[in-house]
Design a protein around this nucleic acid. Structure first.
Lengths: 225, 225
DNA sequence: CGGCATCCGGGAAGATACTG
DNA sequence: CAGTATCTTCCCGGATGCCG
């Protein structure tokens, strides 16, 4: 009957946003779509531990709410895909502020596994503009089945999921975890290479420099017991 | 026993943040503490529909995670209170970006009831810096049992929960909903006064000007069916 | 008053299997 | 590939009662 939805439903816009984003799997789905539309199966495999029924239900609800929209894929690809609406894309600053806050959590583990998309997004959201002020380079990333570009331009960072162009300064081939180890956990590039976790082509110094643009983890201190 | 916690537990800092903030009532509790510590009973009455056992459990968990801390109240007030930790206060930009995004939701209703704290926070997070560029004024708010100050200074907005000082330019006495109607829903001041929903003292023009600093609601369009 | 412990009902999330 | 259907488990919220 009343169909209680367990939402706050008050006029506070922030709690309303959490009504939209706080339900299980909504935020990870939006994250995976931040760099462009994906198909059901790709979403399911990128999220790894979501079950098909929950994904189905969540996509329906997010479409109702206007966060995502169903797209017909242009031939040659068949079938359909899901993409963010303009309003959905406008949630990007939320990811930025949440990532910067969440990285300071005492319980956050930057060495846990992560998806390709979340790694690439972190390259934009976690950069220290001061350290990147004088750095300009176009870097390619080869992460599993997908490729991305990261364009550093005097403090600004532009990211994209696309086929790699010709004019790259350097290319990294690795798992997302290895790139995270390089930039977020200060693991030396040479160590990753000797363990076979990463391969670099092009200007090697660009990658060394890129690894210095991200602040080391400074977790908030828990008060003594 | 595995004790599954229904968290994402991945390295993506944004999803880790939602692990911390997305659980029911966590965000509203943080919101209510953003302008200073409160006691259990005040929290419970400000949140209105939370039950005591859930509030107890949530406060425990938030303390474990380092978001809030238990405080002994200085005499003459007796007992204890709960306040945000430094890391907890650092979540303020999350509220800002979520509020600006949530206000554009097709389902957001700015006329719903809201707490005094969330109204005052919205005066900071929703201001349009361009419109407020040339505006400097110190406004007092009398909302129920609490008083606040709002300090407009050339686009910046500083808010505080405190006893009202002497050098105010104007004072509003009203319910939070009435102030929201004034600034967020473009209800004319005179209408609120004639209906007895608001009383203004001091420089009346300051309040009229203040009402123009906030953009009208522009909701994201839902795609046609 | 200011919490904490326990039981209960309903609903949301997870696992698995299956279908067009 | 793109979802359904079913079953189980877990979490939320309400009520009640206890304790300082």
């Amino acid at each position: 009957m009343p169909l209680k939805k367990r939402q706050y439903d008050d006029a506070c816009a922030a709690t309303h946003a959490i009504d939209m984003l706080g339900q299980r799997w909504v935020l990870p789905v939006m994250r995976e779509l931040m760099l462009g539309p994906k198909r059901f199966t790709d979403l399911k495999s990128d999220l790894r531990t979501i079950s098909a029924n929950v994904l189905t239900q969540r996509l329906e609800m997010m479409e109702e709410r206007g966060v995502i929209t169903r797209l017909r894929l242009a031939p040659p690809a068949s079938g359909q895909a899901y993409g963010l609406t303009p309003w959905g894309y406008q949630a990007a600053p939320i990811f930025q502020t949440m990532a910067r806050w969440g990285a300071r959590s005492p319980e956050h583990d930057p060495a846990a596994p992560m998806s390709a998309t979340s790694l690439v997004l972190s390259l934009r959201s976690m950069v220290d503009p001061e350290r990147a002020a004088g750095f300009c380079a176009l870097v390619g990333l080869h992460l599993g089945r997908e490729t991305f570009t990261v364009d550093y331009n005097s403090g600004a960072v532009a990211i994209a999921r696309r086929t790699l162009p010709q004019d790259l300064d350097a290319v990294i081939t690795a798992d997302p975890d290895a790139v995270a180890a390089l930039v977020h956990c200060a693991v030396p590039l040479i160590d990753l290479e000797t363990h076979g976790r990463m391969a670099v082509s092009g200007d090697r110094f660009v990658i060394e420099r890129m690894a210095t643009l991200y602040p080391p983890c400074t977790r908030a201190q828990l008060p003594p017991e």
